[in-house]
């Protein structure tokens, strides 16, 4: 078997007195879709931010494509980041730029392509996420679902090898959410990318993942395929996936 794309070993992270991650181990193979599920405040966002070097571990290490993130200088880290695309929870589109400038941002920064060529790529990527004739709109004129799609187009514009999804369906109505799920599955088939998603939407997790990992109190409770997770015997995981208020997890 080839080397895993992402390898997280014994990851610890605290913010002041608050310990968020206490020894997370997680491996994502090349081409695999991994979804990390967990409640609000379980450390999912902190975990995903470590993968792309927005945060750095207090202890332990994160290895992406064979490189340990902690050992990289600014330039090497930026080179590595070019392999990534990230879809943010609220899409995080640059609101001073038009839709096509948002999608083409990476190309504009890192290639010598002309604006015309970039616009053509943007149009193509937007079509891939099911959007037409929105190139010249400003992000503020888009609905929540459209913003997510544009964010997704931006994430794949540089032909990323790894895509990170930060709560891809949160804040969307169920139908729009499911269309985003379809898109993610579709993109995986078409582009063969490795992906890591974080979500607390179980419907989405079952649909988009090869494997699911449950994060609770800063540790991975269980990792398995969607079917294995459905049939779990771990009471914590069971309570979470069935969405019950009664059980070992307390809302705090």
């Amino acid at each position: 078997m080839s080397e895993p794309m992402i390898e997280i070993t014994n990851l610890h992270k605290s913010f002041g007195a608050l310990t968020v991650l206490r020894g997370v181990n997680l491996t994502v193979e090349k081409g695999e879709s991994m979804t990390v599920i967990g409640g609000s405040g379980s450390g999912k966002s902190v975990l995903i931010k470590h993968i792309i070097g927005l945060l750095f571990p207090d202890k332990g290490q994160v290895k992406v494509a064979g490189q340990v993130l902690n050992d990289l200088d600014d330039h090497q880290l930026n080179e590595l980041r070019k392999k990534f695309g990230m879809l943010f929870q609220m899409a995080a589109l640059f609101d001073s730029l038009t839709v096509w400038e948002n999608v083409g941002f990476g190309l504009k920064q890192h290639t010598k392509m002309s604006d015309k060529e970039i616009r053509a790529v943007a149009t193509e990527k937007l079509a891939l996420v099911g959007l037409k004739n929105v190139e010249d709109k400003m992000p503020v004129d888009l609905s929540g679902g459209m913003k997510k799609r544009v964010g997704l187009a931006r994430a794949i514009a540089m032909d990323a090898e790894i895509i990170l999804y930060d709560e891809p369906t949160t804040g969307l109505d169920p139908i729009t959410a499911d269309s985003i799920n379809d898109l993610i599955v579709d993109l995986k088939k078409k582009l063969g990318v490795t992906s890591v998603a974080i979500t607390h939407d179980m419907h989405s997790a079952y649909k988009i993942s090869d494997r699911i990992a449950m994060l609770y109190k800063g540790e991975i409770q269980e990792i398995g395929t969607p079917d294995q997770i459905r049939g779990t015997t771990n009471p914590i995981v069971k309570q979470f996936i069935t969405g019950s208020a009664v059980g070992p997890i307390t809302a705090d």
Binding site: M86, F88, G106
Partner: peptide
């Protein structure tokens, strides 16, 4: 606003300082 809406993080992820 760019910070709280993660636009600054987005810049980092697109290898732009």
């Amino acid at each position: 606003t760019m910070r709280v809406t993660e636009q600054i993080d987005a810049l980092y992820t697109m290898a732009t300082n």
